[in-house]
Amino acid sequence: MADDLMTMLRETVEDYRVIRKRHGYLHVSVPRERVMEVIVTAKSRCGKNVLQLISAVDRIERDIFQLTWILESTEDASIFMVSADYPREGCKVPTLKDMWPSAVFFERELREMFGIEFPGNPRQDEDFLLEGWEGIPPMRRDFDTLEYSMKTYGERRKREHVDPRRLIAEHTGEWDTPVPSRKEKS
């Protein structure tokens, strides 16, 4: 099956890069103009008939989103993963909803969590998990989640620090180890 895929890749795209290859598992990176072509051919010619997941990784250092489509075949449970890089600002990705209806939900989630747009998906602006979210999408790495949590849900209550050495010392009266005072540590 993997040989099939390699032949297909060689015929359709020239400049692909194999990231990892094992028995029944192939992960390649292709230029973003050819992604849809590769996925369509993998489904029609190589029997990868299940779309398991569309995932995104925010690589803020390189200013890209790395999107990965995970396809699986129900015949031999082999997995084929296609990755492509998209620019972070104004990221627009073609939709897969005509090939797999379940893609609608993955795309809605990515739209909500990363702000990636899927122009062909009519339901992309519906709420998925966050109801009525405004502002920076929460899974982007420039979103400060601690600050947001403090601002919205209130300050976390401070814990009282209890050092076990102090307890032992108070109990036995022996002060052979240096004991920090209660106020010293935060």
Binding site: L129, P138, T145, L146, Y148, S149, Y153, G154, R156, R157
Partner: peptide, 19 residues
């Protein structure tokens, strides 16, 4: 439910239930 626990910095879970 008391002070946010291990999700104290999550963007989507509340910290103090009694509010």
């Amino acid at each position: 439910t008391i002070d946010g626990g291990m999700y104290f910095d999550s963007y989507n879970t509340i910290n103090i239930l009694d509010r």
